[in-house]
C-alpha cells in the first residue's frame, strides 16, 4: 500500500510535467523522459558539490531553463503533433548521447540526505523516511498544480489559450509567453522528478526511455490536461505495477499496456479529460 503510494507519487512527479506540456498545450513530447534523466544527473552532480537540498533546487531550475531554451530554439517552430513527436524523439537520441559522453554508461547513485535516512513506523510497519518524503512531495506538487490550473488567473488564461489561441490573443493574452512558461514548468517538474528519484533508483542513460512510457501511460489514462486525471492515472499505474508484480508477476508488464489500450479504445480522451479533443 505504501509502496503503491510512493510509486504513485514518483510517477505523478514525472507525469505531471508531461500532463502539463502534453495535456495543457497539446504538445506530444517524447523527450520528457530525457528531461527526467537530465534532472537525475544534474541532481547527482550538484549534490556531490553542494549537498542534496541544493540539488533538489538546482535540478528543476536547470532543466526548466533548458526546457525554455529548447522551446524557444526549436519546439515552438514545429507545427502539428507528428513533427513534435519526431523532433522530440531526435532530442532523446541527443540527450542520451550527451549524458553518456559526460557521465559514462555506468549507473550513478545519490545518497539520501541525513535528515531523511532511516525509517519510521507508519501504521505499524517500518518504512523508509525518504519514501515518505517522496509521497509528501508528490502530494504537494499535485495540490499546487491543481490550484494553479483550476484556481488561478494564470491557469484560466492558459486553458483559454489552449481552447482557442486566436481568441485568447485577441483578448490580450500573451499566448507565446504563456506556452513558454508552461513548457518550462513541465520540464522543471521532470527535473525535480529526476532528482527525487535518483536516491531511490540509480541514474542511467536508459531511463530516458524507460521513464517515458509510464509517464505517457499515466497522462493518457488520466486524461490529458487534467491534473486530477494525472493523479488518478498515477495511482492506477502504480497500483498495477506494485500489486501486479506481487500477485501475478508474469502479467504485470502486459497489464499496464492493456490498461492503456483499453483506455484509448474505451475513452480516447482519457478518464478525466478536460474537454473532448481529436
Amino acid at each position: 500500500m505504501l509502496n503503491t503510494l510512493q510509486q504513485a507519487a514518483l510517477l505523478l512527479l514525472i507525469s505531471s510535467g508531461l500532463s502539463v506540456s502534453m495535456g495543457l498545450m497539446g504538445f506530444a513530447n517524447l523527450a520528457h523522459g530525457a528531461l527526467y534523466m537530465l534532472g537525475a544527473y544534474i541532481g547527482i552532480a550538484v549534490a556531490a558539490k553542494a549537498g542534496f537540498w541544493a540539488a533538489l533546487l538546482a535540478a528543476p531550475l536547470a532543466v526548466g531553463l533548458l526546457g525554455a531554451a529548447l522551446y524557444l530554439g526549436l519546439l515552438a517552430r514545429l507545427r502539428g503533433p507528428m513533427q513534435q513527436v519526431l523532433a522530440s524523439f531526435g532530442l532523446v537520441f541527443i540527450a542520451v548521447e550527451v549524458v553518456r559522453i559526460l557521465w559514462g554508461d555506468v549507473a550513478l547513485t545519490l545518497d539520501r540526505p541525513a535528515l531523511l535516512s532511516g525509517s519510521a513506523a507508519v501504521l505499524g510497519v517500518d518504512y523508509p523516511i525518504y519514501r515518505l518524503f517522496v509521497i509528501l512531495l508528490g502530494l504537494v506538487v499535485g495540490a499546487g498544480l491543481w490550484m494553479g490550473v483550476h484556481r488561478s488567473t494564470l491557469g484560466a488564461m492558459l486553458r483559454a489559450s489552449v481552447e482557442n489561441r486566436g481568441m485568447a490573443r485577441a483578448i490580450g493574452i500573451r499566448t507565446e509567453a504563456l506556452f513558454l512558461a508552461t513548457f518550462a514548468l513541465g520540464a522543471a517538474l521532470a527535473g525535480l522528478g529526476g532528482a527525487v528519484a535518483a536516491p531511490l533508483y540509480s541514474a542511467n542513460p536508459g531511463m530516458a526511455i524507460s521513464a517515458l512510457i509510464p509517464a505517457l501511460i499515466v497522462t493518457v489514462i488520466g486524461g490529458m490536461g487534467s491534473i486530477t486525471g494525472a493523479i488518478l492515472g498515477a495511482l492506477i499505474v502504480a497500483g498495477i505495477e506494485v500489486f501486479g508484480a506481487a500477485l501475478w508477476p508474469d502479467a504485470s508488464a502486459v497489464l499496464i499496456y492493456a490498461a492503456l489500450a483499453a483506455t484509448l479504445i474505451w475513452r480516447p480522451q482519457g478518464l478525466l479529460a478536460v474537454k473532448a479533443r481529436r
Binding site: R77, L86, A87, G90, L91, F93, I94, E97, R100
Partner: peptide, 17 residues
C-alpha cells in the same frame, strides 16, 4: 565513435524542420 546516435538525432531534427 560510440556516439553516432547524436548525429542521427540532430539529422532527424534538421529533416523535420
Amino acid at each position: 565513435t560510440d556516439h553516432w546516435h547524436l548525429a542521427i538525432g540532430a539529422l532527424l531534427i534538421v529533416v523535420v524542420l
